[in-house]
């Protein structure tokens, strides 16, 4: 594994993003909406702002990294970009790490924006950003896992969109449905939302429990990703 190849993929994505308004939009839509709602309700309470940031950042984590990595890999896979990269000495894992690094970098900037809107400062902002990054990374592994076994690009786009909506919205629905919460609490986006809620409340008692569930989700995705990656790779056969 060579760092220069990972950074080459990272650079490719950064250059591509500057020419790709769709991707830019998918990253900024949730923080922009949050900012807009905050400005429109300038007299709103601290609780309103807290719930808004909590819901919007969970939507961001559940949907944006998931659909973005899917879109990038799918486009590169079916336009034979990944094939040319691999034949030019780039390892499939280096490619995935480059794309992951790119999404993580942009997501960290978005997380800071969310954090500032939410009123986090100093060390609490750092913890908030780390929580968002943990959720983003879990979504990326989950998204990569589904994408690498894609054989039909248009069919995959439809499935991924539906899963992304489920992924982003389920924590919000579960918070008002105890029955749904019984299941949804084992899903990482629900725990990320609650983790952010704990941060707002400055309550840290549940953090080990939440991290355990998020970690278990991540571990399962990594195992499944490894199995599917060995079987499918990232090129059209």
């Amino acid at each position: 594994m060579k760092l220069r190849r990972i950074f080459a993929i990272f650079k490719k994505q950064i250059l591509d993003t500057s020419q790709n308004t769709g991707v830019i939009f998918s990253f900024v839509v949730f923080p922009l909406m949050t900012l807009m709602f905050v400005l429109l309700n300038s007299n709103s309470s601290e609780i309103y702002r807290m719930h808004l940031v909590m819901s919007m950042s969970t939507l961001f984590i559940g949907m944006t990294p998931f659909t973005t990595i899917n879109g990038i890999i799918r486009e590169d896979k079916f336009s034979n970009v990944t094939r040319m990269l691999i034949l030019s000495t780039v390892k499939p894992l280096e490619y995935l790490l480059g794309v992951t690094l790119y999404i993580m970098a942009i997501s960290s900037v978005i997380a800071i924006v969310f954090g500032v809107i939410g009123g986090f400062t100093g060390i609490s902002l750092l913890w908030y950003v780390l929580a968002i990054m943990l959720g983003t990374f879990t979504s990326l592994v989950f998204g990569s896992m589904l994408t690498i076994q894609t054989k039909n690009p248009s069919g995959a786009a439809a499935v991924v969109s539906l899963i992304a909506i489920f992924n982003g919205i389920i924590p919000t629905f579960a918070s008002s449905s105890p029955a749904l919460m019984k299941v949804a609490r084992f899903w990482y986006t629900t725990q990320i939302k609650d983790l952010i809620g704990d941060m707002f409340d400055c309550y840290y008692g549940n953090i080990p429990y939440r991290l355990l569930i998020i970690g278990t989700n991540l571990a399962v995705f990594i195992v499944l990703f490894t199995v599917l990656f060995k079987k499918n790779r990232i090129i059209v056969k």
Binding site: K12, L15, D16, Q19, N20, N80, V81, T82, R83, M84
Partner: peptide, 9 residues
Amino acid sequence: DVPGLFERL
């Protein structure tokens, strides 16, 4: 025959 170029760059 399949170029694999970065179309937007």
